[in-house]
Amino acid sequence: MPRPTMKDIAHRASVSISTVSYALNDNSHVHIAPETRARVRRIAKELGYTPNAMARSLRARSSRTVGVVNSKPLTNPRYAAILQGVASGLAEGGFRLAMLPDPTAETVLEDCRNGMLDGLIFVGHDDAVPPQTLVDAAADGTAPLVTIDCGEPAEDSPYSAVDFDYSHGAQAMLEHLAGLGIDTILHLRPEVSSRAERERQSTLMRVLGAGEGMTLRVVSTRLSDSDLAAADIGGRAMTSRHLATVTADLSAALRASHSPPEATTVLCSWGADVEAALRVVADVAPGATVAALAGSWPRTDIWPNLVYSRLPLVEAGQHAAELIVDELLPDATHGRRMLRPLLESEGVSPAGTTEVPSRKDPA
């Protein structure tokens, strides 16, 4: 049996094909009498008519679909949370999400040109920034673009951006630890040169250098940039060799410390090291605090001496979705949104994410 068409509906309803098209289109601004619209839709349902979404997208040069360029596995909770936020934010705006694993996105620019994709969201990590091909496509209007976690773009950049205020997260952590009476920090950190790590280290040195009564000693996890190039390390993806190194070196540092446990904090740069740090502290220095500057979802209800700086990952995705929808408007301006991490510990949960709008963000 042939698939019913708009011509069939028009014949049954005694109206023109254009009237059928307007009656079935929720976004049409052409006035159709309510009874005519209802009759057309009822007949379409009776005939089993389903619109050809592909053809409709090509005619309208819009698919109501946004491509998300993400080269990291979604088994990593960090990126799964960001994508969750993007998906929910796009849905609120009447858009769908298409996953694009190609980090260059060159293969999808043609889809943007022909209307199969309305815009792109680029999810950054470490020192990743959007490739120049995407920036050029945003500049000439081919592919409106929003970046997440790529650093604040230049003033004249042709796209919007959402970023995390890593510096504020580090400063807020030190202020919280000082309030707990901590005088010794064992900083468990990798030997990597990512932007987030550089911003945190700069803030830690600045705040500690300006204050008194708190000292910091670095305990390296020996994880290098070359290790990261070989494999993604996070959560349960940590190797047994890495865990053994962290356990041994941190245990030695705690035993050599002259500060009592209640005045000592193990500060983890990476959420992936929190679990190992908690085990070592429970065994070697019960009563010491474990703190984390990065993502992860540690259970503060079962680890009373745990405090961590939560990155607003889902919220970042939602902000990116809002910005890409704004980018599609005829009079679009490029927004810049900086999100602050929030501290969480036993009995203390943040009420919400603090947003720091950039001066270029109309919000």
Rank of each mutant, 00 (worst) to 15 (best):
D227P: 02
A282F: 01
Y49D: 03
S57I: 06
I82K: 03
S251G: 13
P312Y: 10
V307I: 13
S349Q: 13
A33Q: 14
L339T: 07
R200C: 04
A363K: 11
G115K: 02
E327V: 02
G213N: 07
H258R: 14
M205F: 10
T36W: 00
G295Q: 10
D331A: 13
L134F: 06
I9W: 03
D102I: 05
R56Y: 06
L343D: 02
A105M: 03
L204W: 02
E106N: 13
D163G: 06
T19S: 14
A38W: 00
A138C: 08
R113D: 07
G93N: 09
R200H: 09
Y22K: 07
A161M: 06
A13L: 02
R255P: 00
R189S: 14
P73F: 08
D273P: 00
T354N: 08
G48Q: 07
L342G: 08
L188T: 03
G335M: 03
G211S: 15
D102W: 05
I9A: 02
S21P: 10
H187S: 13
P77H: 01
Q201L: 15
K360R: 15
R42E: 14
N25K: 09
L254N: 00
N27S: 14
D183S: 14
I148G: 06
S202I: 05
E344H: 02
K72D: 06
L311Q: 12
L250F: 04
L90Y: 05
R217T: 15
R198S: 12
G93V: 06
S16N: 11
G287D: 07
D118K: 03
H29E: 13
V307H: 00
Q201F: 11
D361T: 12
T215Y: 10
T133P: 01
P261A: 08
G93A: 09
I32T: 08
D331W: 05
S202F: 04
E191Y: 01
